[in-house]
Amino acid sequence: MKVLVTVKRVVDYNVKVRAKADGSDVDLNNVKMAINPFCEIAVEEAVRLKEAGTATEVVVVSVGAKQCQEQIRTALALGADRGIHVETEGAVEPLVVAKLLKGVVEKEEPRLVILGKQSIDGDNNQTGQMLGALTNMPQGTFASEVAIDGDKVNVTREVDAGMQTISLNLPAIVTSDLRLNEPRYASLPNIMKAKKKPLDVFSPADLGVEVTSHITQLSVAPPAERQAGIIVESVEQLVDKLKNEAKVIS
């Protein structure tokens, strides 16, 4: 079974992001970049499927500028077999990414596609679902457990009411939630091996996709600075303040 897994290059989650002085975008100058944490979980799940003998090949794909290849290499060092880079310029919105991924799915014909449920930069939570709609594949989003069962995949999802387990016919799309697994770290021998693994580059035109934009980012502003808190003397005082000052309970 071939598994396709997607990775997005985002600002490392340890970095405190800043807006550019003109408020046009987030400042990415000299900022450490990394694999989106949810995508890292997706890679880990795919690699575990391979280690368990369920998956035969793990292909990792990333959409974006040339530097995305760093994140593809990292995924290869974590255990993926080969990489695909769809090289684009500038910002690409979820619908375009989904269309490009559809092109890759048609080329690769994977039995399972695993994506992160969302990326920590845009927080859109759209690409997996859009890919499902475009490819007409069943989708199991927010997965906290994935189990292959013959021609089906059982996905346990974290929903508001608790845990829901659904069964999807393969080929299918899964998006990973935070608790699906704890990703491993790369080791030096695997980092060196990753250098030798194949990485193909495609342009959107190769996949028959025209990059268009339906969204214009107007401005980016940092959140208001949090005011210093106070220490209350007692529970009574806390309840009183929540009720009468903050007016968050009645």
């Binding site: 760093e70 770290y185 980092i191 990753a194």
Partner: peptide
């Protein structure tokens, strides 16, 4: 090199 960066990152995570 990319490998050196990846090693330091992996070590940091570990």
């Amino acid at each position: 090199s990319e490998e050196n960066v990846m090693l330091v990152d992996a070590l940091g995570e570990a």
